[in-house]
Simulated assay, not measured.
Amino acid sequence: MTTAHRTRARSFDTAAALYAANRPAYPPALFDAVEELAARPLRGARVADVGAGTGIATGLLHARGARVLAVEPGEAMAAQFRRAHPDVPLVRGDGDRLPLATGAFDLLTYAQAWHWTDPQRSVPEARRVLRPGGALALWWNDLDPRVPWIAGQEARLRDFFRVTGDAAQDAFRLLPAGLGFATRKVPWSRRVPLGTHLANLSSHSAFLTLGEERTRAFVAAERERLLAPGGPARADGTVEEAYVVSLAVAVLPASP
């Protein structure tokens, strides 16, 4: 992991409340797909949610009846998690050095977190803590660039951050080789106030490491564009955010 990548990974601790208030959740269909691809129900399963953040995925896993433990490296994110989910156990750690017992879990989940790990370390750690026949589930929740206004926004972001290439690269390119992942795309949407959409945008690591002044300037200009005639903002000040969750599940052999 480069210094810049490590800095971005740690940046969420500076905006834990912003993250908790504005990041999207996940649709029930995602957890249906996890159960299908892992070939077991979540209810009663021993699950470790790694890189749990403020507990968006962890809380939903808990609501499905999983016996879930959260793993989170950030102090402020962990504090936000504990306020939101006081009944769910949490330990401090990260995917490269899991503070978990060997062979103790049925399912290991990474909700928008796998890309912050070093696969040379996180893959062996995942294999270690999963029981035989256990499953590793990774997913990424991305705005859907097939929607024209979202594609336009992504183009502006790419230009603003001087990113070359396709901003809508497939999340599955991040999958480690050799584990035999089964994949699924889960589309969904949410209607939110425009302010929530923009706050969600500014809670991403690229903006958190950019600085307040430039972030405010971009967000202000984006607000004007989205509110302009013909823009996606409706008369009530809301926008419809379309998402696609990219899910990948690898099931380990039933015997070592």
Score class of each variant (00 low, 15 high):
2 T>A: 06
9 A>M: 04
15 A>D: 02
16 A>N: 05
17 A>Q: 02
17 A>V: 02
17 A>L: 03
18 L>D: 05
19 Y>R: 07
19 Y>C: 08
20 A>Y: 04
21 A>D: 09
21 A>T: 06
21 A>C: 10
23 R>V: 08
24 P>K: 09
24 P>H: 09
27 P>N: 10
27 P>V: 09
29 A>T: 13
32 D>I: 10
34 V>W: 02
38 A>C: 02
38 A>T: 01
38 A>Y: 01
39 A>P: 03
40 R>M: 09
42 L>A: 00
45 A>G: 01
49 D>A: 11
50 V>F: 06
50 V>Y: 04
51 G>T: 01
51 G>Y: 02
53 G>T: 11
54 T>M: 04
55 G>K: 00
55 G>C: 00
55 G>I: 00
56 I>V: 12
56 I>T: 10
60 L>Q: 14
60 L>V: 11
63 A>L: 02
66 A>H: 01
67 R>M: 07
69 L>C: 11
70 A>E: 03
72 E>Y: 14
74 G>C: 12
78 A>Y: 14
81 F>E: 02
83 R>T: 14
85 H>Q: 02
86 P>A: 03
89 P>G: 03
91 V>C: 12
94 D>W: 13
97 R>A: 15
97 R>E: 15
101 A>R: 13
101 A>E: 12
102 T>N: 06
103 G>R: 05
105 F>T: 06
106 D>Y: 07
107 L>S: 11
108 L>W: 09
108 L>A: 06
109 T>Y: 10
110 Y>Q: 11
111 A>M: 13
111 A>E: 15
112 Q>Y: 13
115 H>K: 06
116 W>F: 04
118 D>C: 03
121 R>G: 12
121 R>T: 11
124 P>V: 08
127 R>A: 11
131 R>H: 08
134 G>A: 05
134 G>M: 04
134 G>K: 05
140 W>K: 07
141 N>L: 04
142 D>R: 15
142 D>L: 15
146 R>P: 11
146 R>E: 14
148 P>D: 03
148 P>M: 01
149 W>G: 07
149 W>T: 07
150 I>D: 04
154 E>P: 13
158 R>N: 12
160 F>T: 08
160 F>G: 10
160 F>M: 11
162 R>A: 12
164 T>D: 15
164 T>A: 15
165 G>E: 12
172 F>D: 12
172 F>R: 13
187 P>L: 08
187 P>A: 06
190 R>N: 15
194 L>G: 03
194 L>Y: 03
195 G>F: 03
196 T>Y: 00
198 L>D: 00
207 F>P: 00
208 L>V: 13
210 L>P: 01
210 L>F: 03
212 E>C: 09
215 T>E: 06
219 V>R: 11
221 A>N: 07
222 E>A: 02
223 R>M: 04
224 E>V: 07
225 R>V: 06
226 L>C: 09
230 G>K: 04
232 P>T: 00
233 A>C: 10
233 A>M: 04
234 R>P: 01
236 D>L: 02
237 G>K: 00
240 E>S: 13
241 E>R: 10
250 A>Y: 13
252 L>P: 13
253 P>A: 07
